[in-house]
Amino acid sequence: MTYYRLFRGIFRIIFSLVFRWQVIGREHIPKEGPVILCANHISLWDPPLLGSGIERQVHFMAKEELFKIPLLSFLITKFGAFPVKRGAGDRAAIRTTLKLLEDGKIFGIFPEGTRSKTGEPGEAMPGVAMFALKSQAAVIPVAIIGPYRAFRPIKIVYGKPIDLTSLREAKSGSDVLKETSDLIMARIKELRDQHLP
Rank of each mutant, 00 (worst) to 15 (best):
T180N: 10
Q194T: 08
P121Q: 14
S174F: 00
I140M: 07
S174G: 00
I94T: 09
K155A: 06
M1T: 12
K134Q: 15
A88Q: 15
K171A: 13
R26S: 08
V176N: 13
S172F: 02
G87H: 02
A137K: 03
L191S: 12
P121I: 13
I94E: 03
I156P: 06
L98G: 10
G53Y: 06
L164W: 03
T114E: 14
R12F: 00
A81G: 03
I24Q: 02
A186I: 01
H195K: 07
E32A: 13
T2V: 10
K171G: 12
H59S: 13
E65V: 11
K99T: 13
T118V: 11
G33D: 10
I42W: 08
M1V: 10
G53E: 08
T165N: 07
T77F: 00
I69V: 05
Y4A: 01
F74Q: 13
R152I: 08
G87P: 04
G173R: 04
L50H: 00
A137C: 07
I145T: 02
M130C: 04
I13E: 09
G173E: 03
A93G: 11
K78R: 11
T114M: 05
S116F: 06
A92M: 09
A132N: 10
G104K: 10
S172C: 00
S135A: 09
G9M: 10
Y148Q: 13
R168C: 01
Q22M: 02
P47E: 07
A170S: 15
L100I: 01
G87W: 02
T96A: 12
L191Y: 13
A39T: 02
S174M: 08
R12Q: 15
A129W: 06
L98A: 06
L50F: 00
F19N: 06
P153G: 00
C38I: 07
L100H: 06
M185G: 09
I29R: 06
P70I: 05
L49M: 14
T180Q: 10
T2E: 11
D175I: 11
T2K: 09
H195S: 04
N40R: 13
A62D: 12
D163Q: 04
D193S: 12
D103N: 15
Q57W: 06
A129C: 10
F79N: 03
R95C: 03
W21I: 15
L72C: 00
M125S: 05
L100V: 01
K178Q: 14
F11H: 06
G9T: 13
D90E: 01
R149M: 13
A170D: 14
I36M: 07
A124V: 04
A62F: 05
D193M: 06
L75N: 07
L72W: 02
A92F: 04
A129N: 09
V128L: 01
S16L: 13
Q136H: 12
V142N: 05
A39P: 00
P147I: 03
D46Q: 00
V18K: 12
D103F: 01
K171Y: 02
G119R: 04
S135T: 15
L6Q: 12
M130V: 15
P47Y: 02
A39H: 00
M61C: 07
A92I: 08
E190Y: 01
K171H: 10
K99R: 15
I42E: 13
W45L: 14
E123V: 11
